[in-house]
Design a protein around this nucleic acid. Structure first.
Lengths: 220, 220
DNA sequence: TCCTATTGTGCAGTAACTGCACTTATGACA
DNA sequence: TGTCATAAGTGCAGTTACTGCACAATAGGA
């Protein structure tokens, strides 16, 4: 297993992107059929017509082949608006987070299949959510900027002047809470997608601002 | 390696708890010395005077040997008070979560060493925090109970009668936010412990209520 | 003293992943 | 058209975490 010497003699060799997609497709399809734990890397390799070594040249881990290369990013323009806004903090912060399509011509079938495969397996879904750990630092800084700005503007009439260190702490706490909110959004989206209660292209955070608003009023 | 045939001929065989602790101690010590990734299970086994098979009889994974058996639990009495309270929701919810010492006579040195070892490695710390996924369901229900009770009491004078489903959703969102808060608490605690800015036995959530209060006022 | 549950071991196997040396197709350029 | 550097892929051998199964040794009560 895992050697690809026996392949349709024709058309060896494709460019890197093609191979990557072929592996992703094989992975997603197999996982949809058998479940994540029942699928081995070797099975994916055979289905994709690729050696195991090649698999690991394209993906760091088995997970990665399933989750795809898309990583969360921050919308720079939105970030600038966010910093000077006085609107609802968490809801606006969620709006900052975008999924950056690394290689844009995304295959829509692969995309939706992947969602089905990933959302079926809670552990995978969680790992997907953990990916935004990559931008947590950035988020924290942007939130800190907003807090500092509001403090400088004296927007908090209470006048309880807070030290920069306190604002840093608050920014960190808010960032972690935001991570929680994102996890909620992701899970809810997966749940609704699975039951078909949601159109395929629907925004993952529809109605979120409203819910957040009500919840926050109950936290005090 | 990983066979324990060559052991101080005397005193084979101890009771399970002893062996477990021996393995934990070896694991923590080695990780403190060399870092998590540099330590193999075989190394731990040799240091603990135990075969690899025995290691995996006592711990499901390498992580588990480091993190120890303590799992988060909910304080039942506190939960009942929580449901009928009108105080700050998140702060009080944090108070529900206790670490249940499975085998009580905890070795204090092992305990503090473990904290140093785990908090040095962010990924481990994260995995530790993930453990409260085990009680997330329970938390969500308790929070839902509180929300329902307040709704029934008409405590939200606004009179915007919310459906049970809406309350469920809100409870879920709050649970995820709470998970974020807990992660913050854990990380902060680890950070302060590491720099020695905190007495060894200090409560992990000192000053949290205050910070939470200020932060929540800024979320609106 | 014998018997049995507890504790521990050896061994063989699977699966994810890595480093290294090597081949082969591709496309650019003389 | 030939040649040549490079991108893409492969084979192989090794490491590490983890599992199932059958078996060995011992503690501790009957």
């Amino acid at each position: 297993m895992s050697t690809a010497s026996d392949r349709p003699a024709a058309s060896r060799r494709r460019n890197a992107a093609e191979t990557t997609v072929a592996i992703e497709r094989a992975a997603v399809e197999l996982v949809l059929q058998h479940g994540f734990d029942q699928v081995t890397v070797d099975m994916i390799c055979e289905a994709a017509g690729v050696s195991q070594r090649t698999f690991f040249n394209h993906f760091k881990t088995k997970d990665a082949a399933l989750l795809g290369p898309e990583l969360p990013t921050i919308d720079e323009r939105a970030a600038r608006e966010f910093i000077v806004s006085d609107g609802p903090l968490l809801a606006e912060a969620v709006g900052l987070i975008r999924v950056a399509p690394e290689h844009l011509p995304v295959d829509p079938k692969l995309f939706s299949d992947r969602i089905r495969a990933v959302s079926a397996h809670p552990a995978l879904l969680l790992r997907q959510m953990e990916r935004l750990g990559a931008i947590e630092g950035e988020l924290r800084e942007i939130i800190a900027l907003r807090l500092r700005r509001r403090a400088a503007d004296g927007a908090d009439a209470a006048g309880s002047a807070e030290s920069p260190e306190e604002l840093e702490e608050q920014a960190e706490l808010i960032t972690h809470m935001l991570a929680g909110v994102m996890r909620y959004v992701g899970m809810r989206w997966a749940r609704l997608s699975a039951t078909g209660a949601l159109p395929p292209g629907a925004a993952p955070d529809a109605g979120l601002a409203e819910t957040l608003d009500r919840v926050i009023r109950k936290l005090g």
